[in-house]
């Protein structure tokens, strides 16, 4: 059984009485341990695809199976549970909670469903791993773009997810920081976590073991731009 199996996945939008497909019957199979990059121009539908995989928006047709279980038909509680424990999702932009410290931001996912363990210890370990433990008591507004990105990565790793999904993780970063972040993803992947990244920057794809291209809702293998 494939780890993640996507079949005939479509998402339809209606814009001024014109119906169009943001994602048009996409098929994709991901094995455990893959590092997949999806490239494409903005508006090509790659974010929409990612959001459906993360269970954040529901497809018009088709299905997504994670180890055989269809996540599209899950009830809210079940899909929240899936997002919380199996998925590490890094949204676009500055997606940290501004009222919480960096430390609290990182350990927050731990408290969103019942579990036992040392949350603070793990949060400190992760902050150390992404190299920003000195920022723990700061608030997100005091951080730079690259630091913030590391906070989000640490947060996504909090519950030891099976798969890490990142939407444009290097969009607003300079070349140097982009390289650091991508190397971080690479390290995370090498330690066993499946990584799925969406980007429009071609120079980041060299870190993945598989590259796909999204264009007008269609997904093709390779950098076929």
């Amino acid at each position: 059984m494939m780890f993640l199996e996507i079949q005939k996945l479509s998402k339809q939008y209606q814009r001024r009485e014109k119906v169009f497909f943001a994602v048009d019957s996409v098929d994709l199979s991901i094995s455990r341990g893959d590092f997949i990059s999806i490239v494409g121009r903005s508006g090509s539908g790659k974010s929409t695809l990612l959001n459906m995989i993360a269970g954040l928006s529901t497809p018009t047709s088709g299905n997504i199976r994670l180890e055989g279980a269809d996540i599209c038909s899950m009830k809210d509680r079940k899909i929240s549970e899936y997002r919380n424990s199996r998925l590490g999702y890094i949204p676009q932009g500055a997606a940290a909670l501004s009222n919480l410290t960096v430390f609290d931001n990182v350990r927050l996912p731990y408290y969103l469903s019942k579990r036992s363990g040392d949350a603070s210890g793990r949060a400190s370990f992760l902050l150390d791993k992404v190299g920003i433990s000195f920022l723990a008591p700061m608030y997100p507004s005091q951080l730079s773009g690259g630091e913030l990105r590391r906070v989000l990565i640490a947060r996504a790793l909090m519950n030891e997810p099976d798969i890490l999904i990142a939407d444009e993780p290097t969009a607003d970063l300079d070349i140097e920081t982009t390289k650091d972040i991508m190397e971080l993803f690479s390290r995370i992947n090498k330690s066993g976590t499946t990584v799925l990244i969406v980007t429009h920057e071609l120079d980041t794809v060299e870190f993945g073991n598989r590259v796909l291209t999204m264009s007008s809702g269609l997904l093709t293998e390779g950098t076929g731009l």
Binding site: S80, E81, N84, P91, L97, R155
Partner: peptide
Amino acid sequence: KREFGIFRTLGAPRNK
């Protein structure tokens, strides 16, 4: 709204 959206992406159910 965005803050609540972040909560949801991190796996907070609606009732949370």
